[in-house]
Structure formats: C-alpha cells, structure tokens
C-alpha cells in the first residue's frame, strides 16, 4: 500500500495554534523536511529508467514520508491554490520548480486531467501549507466561471510571455473572475518564461503590469526554468493568504507589492538569463 491514502489519516490543523504550541514544535522541522525532499527528488531524477510521472510520484512519496511521523506538526494553515492558464504556459513546471526546486522539461501528460503539489512555507512564525492544483485543458474555456474556482483560496493566473494568446486569454478570464470572486480570494498574475530571449518575448513586462493594475491584482514575472522569482511568488501568495486570514488580529497592513519589491531587489532582472 502506498502512503498516498494516508492523507486522510493526517490531521490538518487549519486553525491557528496557540503560541505555546508553537514553542513546542521545533521550527526547523520544515526546512529539514524540505531538504530531504530535494535530496529524494534528485535521487529520483538521476535514476535513468524512471519517467517523469514516476519522478513526481517519488517526490510526493518522499515528502509524505518525511512529514508522516509528526502529522500534527505539518502546518498551521492550509490553503488551496489554483493555477489557471492555457496549456504550455508552464503551469506544471512552475509547480515542480516551486516544490522541488528543479526544472522538469518535456511533456507531462496527466491521466485524470488534474494534478496537485503540496508545499509548506514558513511565513514569519507560522507554517503555511499550500496545496497547488492544476487542471488540463483550461484553454477551452473562453472564460473561467465562478463554479470552477469558488473553493480555492488563491488563484495564480499564468501566461507565457512568449505567447500573446495566453496573455489575451488571461485578460478575458480576469474580468470574469473579478466579477465573481469574493474578496477573500488572493489573485496573482504571473508572466512565466521570463528567461526568454528578447526576440521571443511577445508580451512586454509593462503590459502585464498594466493589466494587473487594471484589475488590482499582484503581478510578477517568473521563470520556472531558471527559478527566477518562483519562490518569491509563492511566498507572496502565502503571505497574502495569511494576511487575509489573520489581518484582523495583526496590526499594520501587509502590502504584497512592497514585499515583492523588497525581495526582487536582490534578484537578477528578467531576461538576463538565457
């Protein structure tokens, strides 16, 4: 029996724990688990016979095994994130990069049209688990309707900066989403494949920024291939989710844009990697 079905035995603590509890749990648990996942993924990647699918499965399993001994310590918060965007914009790669910190090239064909990844992020003093969902064939939707994302806590709208159509589709979806999404939903616009050469780029960074501004959502360019901004993007989502959940009790306000500006300062600008 695989460990896959054990997910339901795990208690996911979705309410904020007391500070006393926090002290009990060693805070470095998450980084530890994280490191071992990377190691396991690397091991899986090196085995020549394994397919992409198997690699992914191996990662998943290893992660679970890592966290299994302390089911209650997994996270303080659990959020479901949905990635939206046409096929080929790099949704899966972004997920894989984010979770395993490595880039998987090639085609990833799903058998049931849907897939997800888990990742636990430490934000300040709490652990946030992001479960990131990806479905196939979204490009067939001219607009993504409310029913599709009503149970998600955050939406990542992904387009490919080398593909104008993917950008235009996002624009159409955004208006629909703005009409129906409740205020609690965190929305982020992401222009992926920012590592492309200038010749290949079809959507200017300014266009993305403009669109994001128009709909008052956060914007970021990433590259799943080089890893550029990926971690920061998810971190920003986690932070904003946390802020929306706990905003009332926390003083001050958290501004994602400011946070991102701060974080991206040290990073290389887009398009410098080839």
């Amino acid at each position: 029996m695989s460990s896959a079905d054990r997910v339901f035995e795990r208690r996911i603590v979705s309410k904020r724990r007391t500070s006393a509890n926090l002290e009990d749990e060693p805070e470095k648990q998450c980084p530890n688990g994280w490191a071992s996942v990377v190691a396991a993924a690397a091991a899986a990647a090196s085995s020549s016979s394994s397919t992409l699918r198997q690699k992914a499965a191996a990662c998943k399993t290893s992660q679970r095994t890592t966290f299994q001994p302390h089911p209650d310590s997994i996270c303080d918060w659990f959020f479901k994130v949905m990635v939206l965007g046409d096929s080929g914009v790099g949704k899966t790669c972004l997920l894989v990069r984010f979770r395993d910190d490595m880039f998987l090239g090639g085609n990833y064909i799903s058998t049931v049209g849907v897939d997800f990844r888990n990742k636990i992020i430490s934000v300040d003093d709490s652990k946030v688990k992001l479960q990131i969902w990806d479905t196939a064939g979204q490009e067939r939707f001219r607009s993504v309707t409310h029913a599709y994302y009503r149970d998600a806590h955050a939406l990542l709208l992904l387009y490919d900066v080398t593909n104008k159509v993917s950008f235009d589709n996002i624009r159409a979806w955004l208006s629909e989403i703005r009409d129906y999404a409740n205020d609690q939903v965190v929305i982020m616009l992401i222009g992926n494949k920012a590592d492309c050469s200038l010749n290949d780029r079809m959507v200017k960074r300014e266009d993305g920024e403009q669109l994001a501004k128009e709909y008052s959502v956060t914007f970021m360019e990433t590259s799943a291939k080089s890893g550029f901004n990926v971690e920061i993007a998810f971190m920003a989502v986690a932070r904003e989710l946390l802020f929306k959940k706990t905003g009332i009790e926390k003083k001050g306000s958290f501004n994602v844009q400011d946070y991102m500006k701060e974080q991206t300062k040290s990073n290389c600008p887009a398009c410098s990697t080839t």
Partner: peptide, 10 residues
Amino acid sequence: SLIDYLLAPM
C-alpha cells in the same frame, strides 16, 4: 493511488 484527488477544490 489517486485518492488524494478527492481534495481537489474544483
């Protein structure tokens, strides 16, 4: 093996 997919938000 796919039982986790019941957690899907969509």
